[in-house]
Computed example of a mutant assay.
Amino acid sequence: MFKRIHHAAIICSDYAVSKHFYTHILQLDIVAENYREARQSYKLDLQLPDGGQIELFSFPNPPQRPSTPEAQGLRHLAFAVVSVEQSKRLLEEQGVPVEPIRIDEFTGKHFTFFQDPDGLPLEMYQE
């Protein structure tokens, strides 16, 4: 029935800062950008190389995330990368703090976490 995840939606607190982060630092391609006057909201559609998308929304005064990843609901968003080490280095060169690399005890693959400008936990996981 389901083939893949089509998109994940993220609500940000500062549209310009988050747009820069996802398009310049994470280098996601812009598919479409729309301002919805009735909602005073931007919707930015971003695409990964495999066709998966992220919808980045801005709303006036959105509530903050309740807590760290152990809060109920979506825990984190994970990106597949060829090299966790190289991707970590590239993010750190752009001033993005990245946690130490860990090894998945079940798969033996490398992974690590970093955060977007609003503290949303993002993961890099070795292909």
Rank of each mutant, 00 (worst) to 15 (best):
G51D: 08
G51S: 07
G52N: 13
I54N: 03
E55V: 15
E55P: 10
L56E: 03
L56Q: 05
L56W: 00
L56F: 00
L56K: 03
F57G: 04
F57E: 12
F57L: 15
S58N: 07
F59H: 12
P60F: 09
P60T: 08
P60W: 06
P60I: 14
N61Y: 01
P63Y: 15
P63T: 11
Q64V: 08
Q64P: 14
Q64A: 14
Q64M: 06
R65M: 04
R65Q: 09
P66G: 09
S67Y: 06
S67T: 09
T68I: 14
P69C: 00
A71K: 15
Q72E: 04
G73Y: 02
L74H: 05
L74W: 02
L74K: 05
R75E: 08
R75H: 13
H76V: 11
H76W: 06
H76P: 06
L77S: 05
L77C: 02
A78Q: 05
F79P: 03
F79K: 13
F79V: 10
F79T: 06
A80S: 13
A80E: 11
V81G: 01
V81M: 15
V82F: 04
V82G: 14
V82A: 15
S83Q: 14
S83I: 09
S83H: 10
S83C: 13
V84M: 09
E85P: 10
S87M: 14
K88A: 04
K88V: 14
R89C: 07
R89A: 14
L90Q: 14
L91T: 01
E92K: 08
E92R: 11
E92N: 03
E92V: 09
E93Y: 05
E93F: 11
E93W: 11
E93P: 05
Q94H: 15
Q94N: 10
G95K: 11
V96F: 11
P97E: 08
P97M: 04
V98E: 03
V98C: 09
E99T: 10
P100W: 02
P100S: 06
I101A: 01
I103E: 14
I103W: 03
I103P: 01
I103A: 11
F106I: 13
T107C: 02
K109W: 14
H110Q: 15
F111W: 15
F111A: 01
F114Q: 00
F114C: 00
Q115T: 12
Q115C: 05
D116P: 03
D116S: 03
D116M: 13
D116E: 08
P117S: 06
P117I: 01
P117E: 00
G119F: 12
G119L: 05
G119M: 07
G119I: 02
G119N: 08
L120V: 09
P121G: 09
P121N: 08
P121E: 13
P121Y: 14
P121Q: 07
L122C: 07
L122V: 12
L122S: 00
L122Q: 00
E123G: 10
M124Y: 06
Y125T: 02
Y125W: 13
Y125K: 04
Q126F: 07
Q126P: 01
